[in-house]
Simulated scan of single mutants.
Amino acid sequence: MAAQKIVVAITGATGAIYGIRLLEALKECPDVETHLILSGWAEKTIALETNHSVEAVHKMASCSHDLLNMKAPVASGSFQVGGMAVIPCSMKTLAAIAHGLAENLIIRAADVMLKERKKLILVPRETPLSVIHIENMLAVTKAGACLVPPMPAFYNHPATIDDLVNHLVGRVMDQFGLSHNLSRRWCGINAP
């Protein structure tokens, strides 16, 4: 059985650890091949926010693609992939996806996901939201993308930042139908 290919794009929005942790989690899935794209600002954010080097993040992926390489396999609908996550997704990238402005490989690969009706998961990172942000979110949702904003859940009693990151990454993994043990699931409440 061929490996499921998943594109992981990390933009320059704060929260680079979400994309890094997703790569780590996907690496633990035996039948998943990851294709990584980093924006220029993602590289700066990784250095600013994490203890990971950009080179180490590239090594977490099965394959890395240059942001400006519009000849990469992920730029074509004929390249079979299971889907794509833009994690975190800057408002600039979200706006470009919403309006089909495929000026780089992240936006082109996202555009391919939409036109091929493949799973496109966007993890938008901004607060507060303007009307422009909300309208762009509505546009990508109408086009077929799934928005998974990094909103913490407290029913599982997170004790660390890792707990919060793992919960969000687990929700993204759920969207791809991939098994994981990243966080405790809601089991309901037993009323007295």
Rank of each mutant, 00 (worst) to 15 (best):
Gln4Gly: 01
Lys5Ala: 12
Ile6Trp: 02
Val7Phe: 05
Ala9Glu: 08
Ile10Arg: 03
Thr11Glu: 11
Thr11Tyr: 04
Gly15Trp: 05
Ala16Leu: 03
Tyr18Ile: 04
Gly19Tyr: 02
Gly19His: 04
Leu22Gln: 06
Leu23Ala: 02
Ala25Gln: 12
Ala25Asn: 12
Lys27Ile: 03
Glu28Gly: 09
Pro30Cys: 14
Asp31Ile: 08
Asp31Phe: 05
Glu33Trp: 08
His35Pro: 01
Ser39Phe: 03
Ser39Pro: 02
Ala42Trp: 05
Ala42Ser: 08
Glu43Asn: 08
Ile46Gln: 03
Glu49Gly: 00
Thr50Ser: 12
Ser53His: 10
Ser53Gln: 15
Ser53Trp: 01
Ser53Tyr: 07
Val54Arg: 11
Val54Trp: 06
Met60Gly: 13
Met60Glu: 13
Ala61His: 00
Ala61Met: 00
Ser62Met: 03
Leu68Glu: 07
Lys71Met: 12
Lys71Asn: 13
Lys71Cys: 09
Ala72Phe: 01
Pro73Thr: 13
Pro73Glu: 15
Pro73Val: 12
Val74Glu: 13
Phe79Pro: 02
Gln80Phe: 08
Val81Asp: 02
Gly83Thr: 02
Met84Glu: 08
Ala85Arg: 00
Ile87Met: 07
Cys89His: 00
Met91Asp: 05
Lys92Trp: 06
Thr93Ile: 13
Leu94Asn: 01
Ala96Lys: 00
His99Lys: 06
His99Glu: 11
Leu105Met: 09
Leu105Glu: 07
Ile106Asp: 11
Arg108Pro: 00
Ala109Asp: 01
Val112Asn: 02
Lys115Asn: 14
Arg117Pro: 02
Leu120Pro: 00
Ile121Lys: 00
Ile121Thr: 05
Pro124Ile: 08
Pro128Arg: 10
Pro128Glu: 15
Leu129Ile: 00
Ser130Ala: 02
Ser130Met: 09
Val131Asn: 08
Ile132Gly: 02
Ile132Thr: 13
His133Met: 10
Glu135Ala: 14
Asn136Leu: 03
Leu138Tyr: 05
Leu138Phe: 01
Ala139Pro: 00
Val140Tyr: 00
Thr141Met: 11
Ala143Cys: 10
Gly144Gln: 08
Ala145Lys: 06
Leu147Lys: 01
Leu147Ser: 03
Leu147Gln: 06
Val148Ile: 15
Pro149Glu: 12
Pro149Arg: 05
Pro152Ala: 12
Phe154Cys: 05
Phe154Thr: 02
Tyr155Glu: 15
Asn156Trp: 14
His157Met: 13
Pro158Tyr: 10
Thr160Asn: 07
Ile161Glu: 11
Asp162Gly: 13
Leu164Val: 14
Asn166Thr: 10
Leu168Asn: 08
Leu168Trp: 00
Val172Gln: 11
Asp174Phe: 02
Asp174Asn: 05
Phe176Lys: 06
Phe176Gln: 08
Leu178Cys: 01
Ser179Ala: 12
His180Ser: 09
Leu182Trp: 04
Ser183Trp: 15
Arg184Gln: 13
Arg185Trp: 07
Arg185Gln: 15
Trp186Leu: 10
Ile189Val: 09
Asn190Met: 05
Pro192Phe: 11
